[in-house]
Amino acid sequence: MARAVTTQRKLINTGLAWAIGLLIFFPILWTILTSFKSEGQAIADPPLFLFFDWTLENYAIVQERSDYGKYLMNSIIIAGGSTVLGVLIALPAAWSMAFVPSRRTKDILLWMLSTKMLPAVGVLYPIYLIFIELKLLDSHLGLTIVLMLINLPIIVWMLYTYFKEIPGEILEAARMDGASLKNEILYVLTPMAVPGIASTMLLSLILAWNEAFWTLNLTAAKAAPLTAFIASYSSPEGLFYAKLSAASTMAIAPILILGWFSQKQLVRGLTFGAVK
């Protein structure tokens, strides 16, 4: 639709799109704004938008009440670890599926995706028992492994689709040019796949960061990530909007900032590599 459009039409589009965009974003904006209000102003009638007494005290109180830094570190370790581990395991698998396909490749891929459909709750107790047995309950390692396994099918799937996009002739050219398998992977395949790998890792990071079933049920205090940090504010006595907002902002800020900075890779990643 690369056609000249009247300025008027463009202005209407702009207005409409911005209005809808802001509407969708509003809950997040409102949370961030509220986090800088005093508790009284947070529930003022009528609601206050920008003209209130900005304060940082909620952040200080939240930090004091629950140790934000510890939860943040746990989230980084668990989400980061599961992503790196997952990509390391998925890379060779996706490579062989894309470049040495067999008759069963497609079936294996669909089977992998279908394991994601197994309801976690159906197997919660067995995993719980296994974790107790292996002393993995409330540990970084245990959660890292579980989140890696949860996201592994998606990671394999995405890497596979990215590898599939690399034209076969280029790899044949590398072979004709005398590249060994190692050099082919090192000099040709990897550089071409880096954007795809980055997108995949980003998506896996977000999914792991936000995962709330296993992280809530398999941790207690030591390894609890930000999902647990915020869940502690759902109990009735925590119902102070400004503090809830401050805690929420702290929980989502890292991933929000990361997401916005890497928008281009992310947009690609968010489509799960399934749509060009």
Partner: peptide, 24 residues
């Protein structure tokens, strides 16, 4: 910018979005 605004909810962890919708 509009695209960023529209994508943003995806980054919000489910516990957080449930809490702010429910309460605020």
């Amino acid at each position: 910018i509009v695209r960023i605004l529209v994508i943003a909810p995806f980054f919000v962890m489910p516990t957080v979005s449930a809490l702010i919708w429910k309460n605020m």
